[in-house]
Write a protein that binds this DNA or RNA. Structure first.
Ligand SMILES: [Mn+2]
Ligand SMILES: [Mn+2]
Ligand SMILES: [Mn+2]
Ligand SMILES: [Mn+2]
Lengths: 222, 222
DNA sequence: ATATATTTTTAGATTAGTCTAAAATTTACT
DNA sequence: AGTAAATTTTAGACTAATCTAAAAATATAT
């Protein structure tokens, strides 16, 4: 069995692994777990003994297949609970992360399976993140960052690549909600900032920093 | 803040207190927490420092008002989650206790409030146990034990006073489900065992031990 | 009332997870 | 290559929750 704490470490190593092909450093893990490097070293040795990570001292860490499976199941639970909180209990999408952070450690395969069914087998969570299926397979949603879209293309907002309350509330303020239709009016060459049109009414200015964190889907022109 | 473990101790002391007006013994707590008396002593000193119980060594323990409030909120969460698992996810009533045992420690007033609303503010859980309201008030449901009912009285099964899987499956086997109409045909003077009629069809024999753990409501004759 | 049995507490140890400070290793920079 | 800086690991300590074994207190039974 994996403890609450071990699961959080595995999840964080998984997230860091998505951004690179290299081994993950002790310090990177320490930053996300909000602990000190010394604590991380202890835990990595422990996870290594349990065959959940491959780790040699001073050489960084990598998930084993077994460890990745555990991480994916925790992420699956996290995202399913987020869907529950937003779709069934009416929470706002910027209020659910902390609660899901606790719920993700509840231990019952039967529960997860039934919850998934109750929610209608959703493909992604309220932030647009894909939900691994019961086998740990992450669905390919094919979303792009708004920063990769070219001028005049029409897209629909599908999610975010960052979950901070700050960011989510900023999006709410400028009226950029899930499902919003977006058209790129102009791209500023110098700083890659954008002028976009949201729906039919609003024009709006976006920094590249924001655009990189907005996930969109191209509208099919058929 | 109260930890997972502290909450379990408080809940157990609450349950034991319901059966007596006296102080609760260290051993009684140890039995239900599945720990040793020495561990209980340590925890009681700690809970006492936090003003959650009143405790003097060798004299047993009692919840303070503050401790009772915490216990009631844990019980509230436990029972609400049980309702969710049965009514929304389709679990059987004998499958939900262990899962609720974990869910009851999730920490968010907002979550509990919204869950309560989502479930339609239920008065009792799938076992017929009353659900404390947000102020910690336990609704008076006025259910009686089947063992207290007199011959020829008509009653409806509303719950159970015991949650063991064994017991619940036995009830299922003899067809004694929530909402079943029961009529007492005969009471055996010697061992207080009962012959009852369930619904219109079945006659059935019940030991006093079973009858004591079946909760019923008298049918209004109007 | 005294001796015996039971219950409860203390003393000392263990495990998981964390910390600080110091030592070891790796990386980066002349 | 040689030194300085940064990273990582070890050593030793702490807290929460638990245990066993021994001591202390309470309850029970002659
Ligand atoms: Mn977590
Ligand atoms: Mn999410
Ligand atoms: Mn519990
Ligand atoms: Mn119950």
């Amino acid at each position: 069995m994996t403890s609450f704490t071990e699961e959080n470490y595995l999840k964080i190593i998984y997230k860091l692994s998505a951004e690179t092909d290299n081994e993950i450093s002790t310090n990177a893990v320490a930053e996300l777990t909000q602990t000190k490097a010394a604590s991380v070293t202890d835990m990595l040795r422990k996870l290594s003994e349990k065959q959940l990570v491959s780790y040699q001292k001073y050489q960084g860490v990598r998930l084993t297949e077994k460890g990745e499976k555990v991480a994916l199941m925790v992420i699956r639970k996290h995202r399913l609970w987020e869907v529950f909180l937003v779709n069934k209990l009416g929470f706002n999408w910027d209020e659910v992360h902390e609660i899901a952070e606790e719920l993700e450690h509840i231990n019952s395969d039967e529960l997860v399976q039934r919850l998934d069914e109750f929610l209608g087998f959703p493909q992604c969570d309220p932030h647009g993140d894909p939900i691994p299926n019961r086998h740990g397979l992450m669905p390919e949603l094919g979303y792009k960052n708004l920063s990769e879209i070219t001028v005049n293309q029409q897209v629909v907002m599908m999610g975010v690549a960052q979950h901070s309350t700050n960011f989510l509330q900023y999006l709410a303020k400028i009226g950029l909600n899930l499902g919003a239709k977006i058209k790129i009016i102009e791209i500023n060459d110098f700083d890659k900032s954008l002028t976009i049109k949201i729906g039919v009414k609003k024009e709006c200015f976006l920094s590249n920093e924001v655009a990189k964190n907005v996930l969109v889907k191209a509208i099919k022109m058929d």
